[in-house]
Amino acid sequence: MPVLESNFKPPFQFKNGFVATVYSGLFRKIKGLDQERERIDTRDEDFLDLDWSFAKSKSDAVIILLHGLEGHAQRPYVTGAAKLFNQNGVDAVCVNFRGCSGQDNRFYNSYHSGATDDLDDVVLHCVKKGYSKIYIKGISLGGNITLKYLGEDRDIPTQIKSAIAISVPVHLHGSANELHKLKNKAFAIRFKKHLVDKLKLKIKQFPENISVEEIKSISTLRDFDEVYTSKAHGFKDASDYYKQSSSLQFLGNINIPTLLINALNDSFLSPECFPVKEAKQNEYLFLEMPKFGGHVGFIQKNNVYYNELRALEFIKGIF
């Protein structure tokens, strides 16, 4: 499908990608959303905490919202979308990945960029609840999971009608390289601290899996993926994890309408994360590359973000 032209124009002060990213991550607030938590078991006997919010009248449609690295279901980029969709007649289920709901998960392994079985469990749970129209919106890491899930060799329930992926590192190795550059140092330090703090909890429960010395050896995000992510989830090393989990290689197999929005000034993304060729070769993949937006920073007036409005337009068939 041809690449879509974007008409996103943020307020002047948010044309800078760094400013838009930081403001959206640290200062945006969403009020007036009531959520109900539900815990479900996964196929491997772990658990997921789901935060539900509902349209005013009974709906047969639901949007599954997936957060990014070290996020959770109360992050504004998740709740903002939930509130907008609820206001437009669609229920929302905001997924907390394993260990992200405020309580550690049961096992040594947790979540990662390519872990799609948990999304499948949530989809099947929504099907069981009777929803006939299911949409998926993934942000950053959650977007990579969304795209990989849709393009894998697995049975996709017919109830899934469309998907939206925002600020997605579809090429994990390239994105990892960008995150290790000086321009992203502050973000990388923040991510690493959160990840290492969680790993320190794991060592108390699973001392046979990792040592204090190994944790102390982690000085970068790639080190974390070498020491923990790859080993805990069955990969050879960080490079193997990036290679197998990148959604780029799965884009050609997607066969439901899918919108990917990646801003050109997103400092987390490498050139490979703008899959123009793949979009042009797949009639179901719509790629939009706004000039502005940073990483999940598509700021507009009235605290409703451009990517949220575009997601709503997309599921209504407005391209």
Rank of each mutant, 00 (worst) to 15 (best):
G252D: 07
G252C: 03
G252R: 07
N253V: 02
I254S: 02
I254A: 03
N255A: 10
I256C: 02
P257G: 00
P257D: 14
T258M: 03
L259P: 05
L260D: 04
I261L: 12
I261C: 07
N262D: 09
L264E: 15
L264S: 13
L264R: 15
N265S: 11
N265H: 11
N265V: 09
D266L: 09
D266G: 11
S267R: 13
S267F: 14
F268Q: 07
F268T: 07
L269W: 08
L269K: 10
S270I: 00
P271C: 08
P271Y: 12
E272Q: 12
E272Y: 07
F274P: 00
F274Q: 03
F274S: 01
P275R: 11
P275G: 05
V276N: 04
V276F: 08
E278P: 03
E278V: 06
A279W: 10
A279V: 08
A279T: 08
A279R: 11
K280H: 13
K280D: 14
Q281C: 06
N282Q: 09
N282V: 06
Y284K: 15
Y284V: 00
L285R: 07
L285F: 15
L285V: 12
F286I: 01
F286C: 05
L287E: 06
L287Q: 09
E288F: 00
E288G: 01
E288H: 02
M289G: 01
M289Q: 15
M289C: 14
M289A: 04
P290G: 02
G293D: 10
G294S: 09
H295T: 05
V296P: 03
V296E: 02
G297M: 10
F298H: 09
F298D: 05
F298N: 05
Q300V: 00
Q300H: 01
Q300M: 12
K301Y: 10
K301E: 14
K301M: 07
K301R: 14
K301D: 12
N302E: 15
N302W: 10
N302D: 15
N302F: 13
N302P: 02
N302I: 03
N302Q: 13
N302T: 10
N303Q: 08
N303H: 07
Y305N: 13
Y305P: 01
Y305H: 13
Y306H: 09
N307M: 12
N307D: 14
N307C: 15
N307E: 15
L309N: 05
L309A: 01
L309I: 08
R310I: 07
R310F: 06
L312S: 02
E313S: 14
E313A: 12
